[in-house]
Design a binder for these strands. Structure first.
Lengths: 109, 109
DNA sequence: TGTTTATATAACTGTATAGTTATATATTGC
DNA sequence: GCAATATATAACTATACAGTTATATAAACA
């Protein structure tokens, strides 16, 4: 929270974006897209989620600017609009590892 | 997602942590604690949230290792266990700003 | 035109949880 | 012991939303 001051409005917008990442299904969709552009069906195939479900998640991620969309004929191609998402995930993974280390340390003592 | 591979289990753990930050009330509690250790009542006062509500949010944040707890007499002092949380928030704010810029640009064209 | 296919959307169900009220659990000091 | 205070918890309500099923939209092609 450096540049923007945390007014209730900004807080809500930031929370909304964290919430979008706070869903296993959406994280695995984003993880899929790491390899590059994919159609909806390919994401469905890769994740094992239902088609309508994937479509809804992609709409949400698109609305928040996490993914980009390109339509070509029958197909909709989705891709990461913001590679920095994974920086967020990396940081969160780092936290997680530190947390698990701390917990193990606590158990050992 | 550098070190850990995104197994369903890891994905769920990461999502759980993002979800914790995906709540305006919890973000403002964390923002409060930026200034240093606070009692529950002080957080209640500062945020305007209800006491039971704050207590629950703090339990959750504590369970996930975001805040530390110290009990002294009647009071429970909570503090940030992980200053890096704000790095996450900064990144998300950066995304938000970029997103808003892009949207403005789109409207202008 | 009609058929097929890919994606989006509408309607619904079940579940999770934020917030509230009331109460329980400690701890301090009389 | 009892009263007062700070925090935690239990029980409840209302809402948000993930996932599903069924259907609509729209593009390609026969």
């Amino acid at each position: 929270m450096a540049k923007l001051t945390m007014t209730p409005e900004v807080t809500a917008l930031v929370a909304e974006r964290f919430k979008a990442l706070g869903e296993p299904a959406r994280l695995s969709i984003l993880n899929c897209l790491r390899g590059g552009e994919m159609t909806v069906s390919e994401v469905v195939e890769a994740t094992g989620l239902g088609q309508a479900n994937v479509s809804k998640h992609l709409q949400l991620l698109h609305g928040l600017g996490f993914v980009a969309r390109r339509k070509d004929g029958l197909f909709a191609y989705y891709s990461l609009a913001d590679k920095h998402v994974f920086h967020l995930c990396d940081l969160m993974c780092g936290r997680l590892e530190a947390e698990l280390r701390a917990r193990r340390k606590l158990l050992a003592s």
